[in-house]
Simulated scan of single mutants.
Amino acid sequence: MSSTDEPPPSPRPTPGALGYRLPAEWEPHEATWIAWPRNKEDWPGKFGPIRWVYAEIVRCLSRSERVRVLVGSGKAERKASDSLEKSGVDLDRIEFVRFRTDRGWLRDSGPMFVVRDRSIGAEGEPPPVALIDWKFNAWAKYDNWRRDNRLPKFVADRLGMDRWSPRVPIDGQQRRVVLEGGAVDVNGLGTLITTEECLLSHEQERNPGLNRSGYEQLMAEYLGVSKVIWLGRGIVGDDTHGHVDDIARFVDPTTVVACVEENQGDPNHAPLRENLERLREATDQDNRPLRVVELPMPAPVVFDGQRVPASYANFYIANSVVLVPTFNDPKDREALGILAGLFPGRTVVGIHAVDLVWGLGTLHCLTRDQPRGPAAG
């Protein structure tokens, strides 16, 4: 190498190498992000009542923390503001953010915020909160995703946060990695649960050529994960093809709730039973067994001949409340009671979701938590 040549730049350290990790949802939030509903195709024939369901979600969340509401225009903001005000929302707790989305499923299209616990405040240390900008391609199923795919960069720029966009070599090219927030759930200490149906199936394949070990390496490098627990299949009606947030969720560092279907004739019975057994046999990042609590499934919810993915596991954990979808079902009370026992420091609130789930998702699918970060704690 001549004296005028310079060595190639060193690769940028990954978040995992810098000590970042994906926090558990129960860790303190700076805010919750949600996108005001705008795409009528998400709720064909039922769009009318959806804004009132959203208003109730925002009302409950705003009592717990700041809510950042994405709206596409000034007109949309005025309409959203009117609905929220009529629903008793304190608008001082709301921050409207102008960004036009394709759809509103921020769990999947929004950024994954990561936090860094060590050396907080030391000069030259990375900031306590950053974000991961995975590619979003509408679950490898729909064609309206390009605006949504730009959302994480917009958020990073708005908040002044560091951002990583994971890439892997596939077919001789560096390709951005697709990963949705609803596909994973973590305990914040290094253990992550996901499903083979979502990440490893060739149907709705997000990342052709990326295998199990490849995903595990990515989760270690970008999310600080040291242990991945692979479940099998998701539930009937889930158009994401196997998201874990409809079947199993961490509720504390050592406890997982797992959905079960008692009716042996229901197509969800066998896959949920298999997932339950996998969790009972699994261990966490410290090789300790998990505590597994069974969560019932509601009776099938069907509209216009289509079964939709109704599940109590699609709850959302905010700072002082846990919002749980309900379905006018006798099991509503049982599910709320189980979750209330698991979140003694939070108020567990049921949100009527029979109309909402016609969009093929409910509360967790719609929300994205922005962690406060240890520096502000």
Results as ranks from 00 to 15, higher is better:
Asp143Phe: 00
Asp157Gly: 11
Asp286Met: 15
Gly373Lys: 02
Pro23Met: 07
Pro126Tyr: 01
Met297His: 04
Arg150Asn: 13
Pro289Val: 14
Val256Ala: 03
Ser109Asn: 11
Lys331Trp: 00
Ile50Tyr: 02
Glu197Tyr: 05
Phe250Tyr: 08
Lys46Pro: 01
Ser73Val: 08
Pro344Asp: 03
Ala35Ser: 14
Met297Cys: 11
Phe250Lys: 01
Gly242Tyr: 01
Arg167Tyr: 00
Arg176Thr: 07
Asn39Arg: 14
Ala270Arg: 15
Thr326Gly: 05
Cys60Phe: 00
Ala76Asn: 04
Asp5His: 11
Ala80Asn: 07
Met112Phe: 00
Gly88Glu: 09
Ala138Met: 04
Pro253Met: 04
Ser83Phe: 00
Asp332Trp: 00
Asn328Phe: 00
Gly350His: 07
Asn137Gln: 13
Pro28Ala: 07
Gly160Ser: 08
Gly188Val: 11
Leu356Glu: 07
Gln173Ser: 14
Asn39Tyr: 00
Phe343Met: 06
Asn39Met: 09
Lys79Cys: 10
Glu216Arg: 14
Gly305Ala: 13
Gly237Arg: 13
Val71Arg: 05
Thr101Arg: 09
Asn263Ile: 09
Val186Gly: 02
Val168Cys: 09
Pro11Asp: 06
Val308Thr: 13
Arg249Ile: 03
Asp143Ala: 14
Arg116Asn: 04
Asn207Leu: 03
Arg93Leu: 08
Glu77Trp: 05
Val321Ala: 12
Ala138Val: 05
Gly19Phe: 00
Ser320Lys: 14
Leu279Gln: 10
Glu125Ala: 15
Lys86Phe: 06
Pro344Ile: 07
Asp42Asn: 14
Leu339His: 06
Asp246Gly: 15
Gly234Trp: 03
Pro111Asp: 01
Glu196Leu: 11
Arg68Pro: 04
Thr101Val: 12
Gln370Cys: 09
Ser119Asn: 13
Pro111Val: 06
Pro309Lys: 10
Phe327Pro: 04
Val349Asp: 05
Glu30Val: 06
Leu295His: 10
Lys86Tyr: 05
Phe99Lys: 13
Ala156Phe: 06
Gly373Tyr: 01
Ala318Asp: 08
Phe136Tyr: 13
Arg63Leu: 11
Glu30Ser: 14
Leu70Asp: 01
Glu216Gln: 15
Asp157His: 12
Glu56Phe: 02
Trp26Tyr: 01
Lys75Met: 08
Phe136Trp: 08
Ser165Met: 10
His241Arg: 15
Glu125Met: 13
Cys365Leu: 10
Ala31Pro: 06
Thr362Glu: 10
Arg273Tyr: 08
Val244Glu: 02
Ala55Met: 02
Gly373Arg: 01
Asp157Ala: 14
Arg273Gly: 12
Asn314Phe: 01
Thr4Glu: 00
Glu95Trp: 03
Ser81Lys: 12
Ile193Trp: 05
Ile235Trp: 07
Trp358Glu: 07
Val236Gln: 14
Ser165Trp: 00
Arg107Tyr: 04
Ser73Ala: 11
Asp157Asn: 15
Glu334Leu: 14
Glu261Phe: 05
Val348Asn: 03
Asp148Ile: 11
Met1Gly: 15
Leu131Asn: 09
Gly265Asp: 11
Lys79Pro: 03
Asp42Cys: 11
Val257Met: 09
His202Val: 15
Val155Lys: 05
Arg280Gly: 15
Leu356Trp: 02
Leu70Ala: 14
Gln370Thr: 12
Glu216Gly: 12
Gly234Leu: 10
Arg98Ser: 13
Gly242Leu: 08
Arg158Glu: 10
Leu356Phe: 08
Asn137Arg: 13
Arg307Asn: 07
Thr32Leu: 08
